[in-house]
């Protein structure tokens, strides 16, 4: 369970992101604690993915301070950067698998990069990672273009988990999946968190995901984050948050979860 007393594993302070004249983040703060699942929600175009990209160092902010594993991402040496990259995994929206490699080879890329392993062991690791993310046998030999969207996401997750990272970043992991597959994906993330003690930073639109697996929720409104448990945020007065949780979809999701809990 999340350990909120300890040092945060990700710390974002006073973040400002601007593209042209458009300010996306304005003095945004965030702390993510070890072992928790944090869901980031917000309207389309509110800058959720930009926040994720900033934390993993793909986007340089205009101002602010980003720390992961206690190290400043914006002023880091290449050696430290590699050390950090070894300890996080990123699942991009459509998997971002290398299209010229098979799924198994995709999973082996980080293993090859960081460890000197015999090929046979890498093949075995790739094979059981494919099993862990719930892909059918034989997927490892396929190329990404031969897979469905849901399978690409699972393969992307398998690659993100290849090095048994401490943090995984997920960009809309359930978007575009059918409800059953999305539910399975939620369960998968929850199980992995339970067994591996993962910290999960997840950008999502999916209310069911938020309700079923997130410990805390961060809502991106007015260029800042409002962070809290689901319970706390439901009582937030902000109009967007109100309509998010109390709109028809929000109510339906909360209701079904209530029924689920009663059973």
């Amino acid at each position: 369970m999340p350990d909120q007393s300890g040092e945060p594993i990700i710390r974002v302070q006073n973040l400002v992101n601007r593209f042209g004249n458009e300010t996306v983040h304005d003095g945004l703060d965030l702390e993510v604690f070890r072992g928790e699942v944090l869901g980031v929600v917000g309207a389309s175009g509110s800058g959720k993915s930009v926040l994720l990209r900033t934390i993993i160092g793909l986007n340089r902010p205009v101002a602010g301070h980003v720390e992961v594993f206690g190290r400043d991402i914006l002023a880091i040496s290449d050696t430290d950067q590699r050390e950090i990259e070894k300890n996080w995994g990123v699942l991009f929206q459509d998997g971002a698998l290398f299209s010229s490699l098979t799924v198994a080879e995709n999973i082996e890329v980080p293993l090859k990069e960081y460890y000197d392993m015999p090929l046979r062991l890498m093949d075995e690791i790739a094979a059981f990672k494919i099993g862990i993310v719930g892909l059918p046998e034989g997927t490892g030999e396929k190329y990404p273009s031969q897979l469905s969207g849901g399978m690409r996401k699972r393969s992307g997750l398998a690659r993100a988990l290849a090095l048994d990272p401490e943090i995984v970043f997920l960009d809309e992991p359930t978007a575009g999946l059918d409800p059953i597959a999305a539910g399975d994906f939620d369960i998968l993330i929850r199980d992995l968190r339970g067994s591996l003690g993962l910290t999960v930073f997840m950008v999502t639109h999916d209310l069911d995901t938020l309700i079923s697996i997130c410990d805390r929720v961060a809502v991106l409104v007015d260029k800042k984050l409002r962070v809290g448990t689901l319970e706390q945020l439901m009582h937030d007065e902000h109009p967007w948050i109100q309509s998010y949780f109390h709109g028809p979809r929000g109510r339906a999701a909360l209701l079904s979860e209530g029924e689920h809990l009663q059973k």
Binding site: D123, A127, I132
Partner: peptide
């Protein structure tokens, strides 16, 4: 235990052949 269980449920998948 959960970790061992998780890997065990993944099953004994034969490694994929490299094309």
């Amino acid at each position: 235990e959960p970790l061992i269980d998780q890997v065990r449920t993944a099953g004994f998948v034969p490694p994929a052949r490299h094309p």
